[in-house]
Design a protein around this nucleic acid. Structure first.
Lengths: 308, 308
DNA sequence: TCAACTCATGCGATCTCCGCATCAATTGCG
DNA sequence: CGCAATTGATGCGGAGATCGCATGAGTTGA
């Protein structure tokens, strides 16, 4: 019913070369093969495309139209295959990374800028959200992988440690505790505590830390965003504890930080992948870029360190 | 190296249906055939496109991209074949008709308007020129056929009589000859004669007619276009003889016409085709329309008659 | 626990397509 | 004027692709 790609390509080559023999040489096939292919195509279409005598080959009106269309089809095929191959090699397409807002704002930019210099044709999409939705994005396949705090181990996910992110005490500029070189969780427990929202992974960890030193965990106030917490601290309403990585998000608020010990709380940020899945090539390349930075020991903010 | 159309179509069907069995039913092939086709495609690309467990088939990231591209390629192929078939059936494309300006202006419009109501998708190109160039257009293939005066018989051309076009005397409004019901070439020879240009087919015939009655053939003046000759006659500079078909081209000039006898000169307008060539379908349809008008005896101007 | 349904695969038959050799026709050179 | 060279078409045999049938392996749901 429909013409074969081979027939169309053969016809196009013959029509362009105006010669079966020359086209056969270009295509590295026998002349007889092309002769048959074109004859078959003509029979299929029920129309003569080429006017041949033993010396010249020339196109009929139908042949001109057929050449135009055959080239169109063959080009669409070749271009499509090329595009697909580029995609499979990870040289085009999109990588979607799901991650926490802090990682998105602080850690990712330097990774992406490095990645883009190597693969400018690959777009990067950042899907930022809270811990729960981040993992959902990976499980549903919306994201190629996630960078997030580790939840409970799941056989749906494969997790690779990426960085450790230490909690620091966040204090108003002239607060008495700023006199100490280090601050303990017990010290903080004696002050009004400003917490982040209940959905945040940070909140889960601060609650756990206070529980560990048998201190009350009731916050004096809580806010959804890090920036708000920073503002509250700067205004002297109380103190807080935040992972070092998110400190840039406190923005322009004037706060003072001190190492936080007894115990030292290290939040682990992992790369989370769907288990038993091959990672798309482009995403794999982004992971490689990330790993290269880790191996090279690329500089990180105080309190943040590469894993392993 | 490249994927087969069949593989791409098979993959697209399976990916769209998210089921090998369902896709096989739609395509009226066995399930095993599709299973192999997709597996072959995946092996060729070196990437997994579908994630199958025994219950569900779902697309990988590569699969999503492959589906988009496969559909693109398959659609391009199908659309192209459809377009080509339409062309070959004469339902699209262009018909090029080479013809004399008089035919182009007077005879063709009614033919084309009839033709376009039946095949609105087919464009008509009119290549008007003098007798010589008209035939060249056909011989080079620029035009599908010509409507023109018959030159010397050539084995390159096939000619079919179309209409007979009788010469009439063209006189100033109050010229003495307008008193006669008929005018003869000898009558005209006694008046100053206004001729068309030497390249025109009309000129060849008027010269021949005067020679036939042993009259001088030296024109008082000559002009390239019919409209100019009409103007000269209207201004009383002399008389002329023109085929009935071209009279509309004298435009608004006030002239009087009389039948021209002794001898009656009938210019034959033929359809000229390249010999031993199949006419493109769309052109064939236009010829059929023309023939239908002839058979129906479609009305023509006085002095013009269908052949046969 | 088992029937039912999924996709994968071994196998044999068929079909397509390729290349080699050759033919018929025309051209161009001697 | 005639022969060598070149062109596209075609008969033929073989290699490879592809198909459907039957069946296998694995999972689901009653």
């Amino acid at each position: 019913m429909d013409a074969t790609l081979r027939q169309l390509a053969a016809y196009a080559a013959v029509a362009r070369a105006a010669s079966f023999t020359a086209a056969a040489a270009q295509m590295h096939v026998s002349q007889s093969s092309l002769s048959r292919a074109v004859a078959d195509l003509e029979r299929l279409l029920g129309a003569q495309l080429l006017e041949r005598d033993t010396r010249n080959v020339q196109l009929t009106a139908a042949g001109v139209e057929a050449l135009r269309i055959a080239e169109q089809i063959v080009n669409a095929h070749q271009a499509g295959m090329k595009e697909l191959r580029r995609f499979l090699l990870g040289e085009s397409g999109t990588v979607a990374v799901a991650t926490l807002p802090s990682v998105a704002a602080v850690l990712l930019p330097r990774v992406i800028s490095q990645f883009r210099t190597q693969r400018p044709q690959v777009a990067v999409r950042i899907l930022d959200g809270l811990e729960r939705s981040v993992l959902d994005r990976v499980l549903t396949g919306d994201a190629d992988f996630a960078i997030t705090t580790v939840g409970r181990p799941s056989d749906q996910l494969e997790q690779r440690p990426l960085v450790h992110d230490r909690f620091v005490a966040v204090l108003p500029p002239h607060h008495p505790l700023t006199e100490h070189a280090e601050v303990s969780w017990e010290d903080l427990a004696r002050e009004p505590f400003l917490a982040v929202g209940r959905d945040s992974s940070v909140r889960r960890l601060t609650d756990a830390a206070f529980a560990q030193v048998d201190a009350h965990a009731e916050p004096a106030a809580e806010a959804g965003s890090i920036a708000t917490v920073g503002g509250l601290v700067a205004a002297g309403l109380g103190v807080s504890a935040l992972p070092a990585l998110v400190l840039p998000l406190t923005g322009t608020a004037q706060v003072t930080c001190r190492p936080l010990v007894g115990p030292v709380i290290d939040r682990r940020l992992d790369i989370a992948l769907r288990a038993r899945r091959t990672v798309p090539r482009a995403a794999h390349h982004l992971l490689e870029t990330l790993d290269a930075l880790r191996v090279q020991g690329h500089e990180l903010p105080d309190g943040v360190a590469w894993s392993e």
